[in-house]
Amino acid sequence: MNGSIWVLIEDQDGVPSATSLELISAAHNFVEKVSGFAFSTNPTGLSKALEHFGVERLYAVTADQSSLPGVVLSHALAQVLTQGSELPRALLCAQSYTGRDTLARLSVKLDVPVLTNVVNLIEVDDDLRAEHQIFGGEEVASSQFTHPGLRLFGVRAKSFVPKETPSKEVVIENVTVEGIGLSDSAKVVSTHSEERLGPKLDEAAVVVAGGRGLGQAENFLFIEELAKLLNAAPGASRAIVDAGWVPYSYQVGQTGKTVKPNLYIAIGISGATQHMVGMKGSKNIIAVNKDKDAPIFQIADLGVVGDAHKVLPKLIEALKQR
């Protein structure tokens, strides 16, 4: 394909988020020229990290730091896109908080639609088609745009593998945004992070996840203990996040994290479609559930029909003995 593709780069503590790098590599499957677009306090740091991924240019947006990123980024993008001489063919954003907000506002500003929840991109007739998982990943639908214009895609995490390229300097282009107006009236006044020990949920080789079948919040301690023994990250279904047993950052699934570990252990999780789309890509799956008809067993490599309250303590004890 001729032309360029732009990628929304999300700054995560000074470095590009893992998904940003995945999207850059995805873009390289179709075009040579890939540019990044970021709202960051540290564009030089970001550009250094992007040198190894073949990014030509980094549009670094400066704006009020307390503004919501989606408002700033969509405004800046519209500004650059309407002034720019050479327009990109497509913009790839992660299906994340910032990615969604940016795409939503930009789609209205440019009056072009967005294809969301993309898990794969395919070139057909010099255009990009997107694949989405539907019905819990049982079927894959391909969608395409029907009118000319910039292609906007919201891509799910871990859909592409990041690939390093020979290192090349990134040109930084500054974009200043001011006076956005009413839509910028929401301001972040403070940020709170929950401490998490052990490997990160979306990077761990092993994930031990618990669901409503644990019975009560205290029983999540078993999940944490098992996770510790296996050097795994603890995870959760939305049911117990909603119930307040564990923070949202533990959630696996459609609205939580997408994980693809070597091993996923699901305890007391039924296997709702929205949970499965977030963990179906795991290499190996173990499930413990007292209902032999639970949908999770349809994708488990080892399924144990049993009571979590009996199996878990014994398993933990056996692993401690080793």
Binding site: E138, D301, V304, G306
Partner: peptide, 13 residues
């Protein structure tokens, strides 16, 4: 149709 993931062994505790 997505490539179906094959379920494996299911055992009773």
């Amino acid at each position: 149709q997505a490539e179906a993931r094959q379920g494996g062994q299911v055992i009773e505790d």
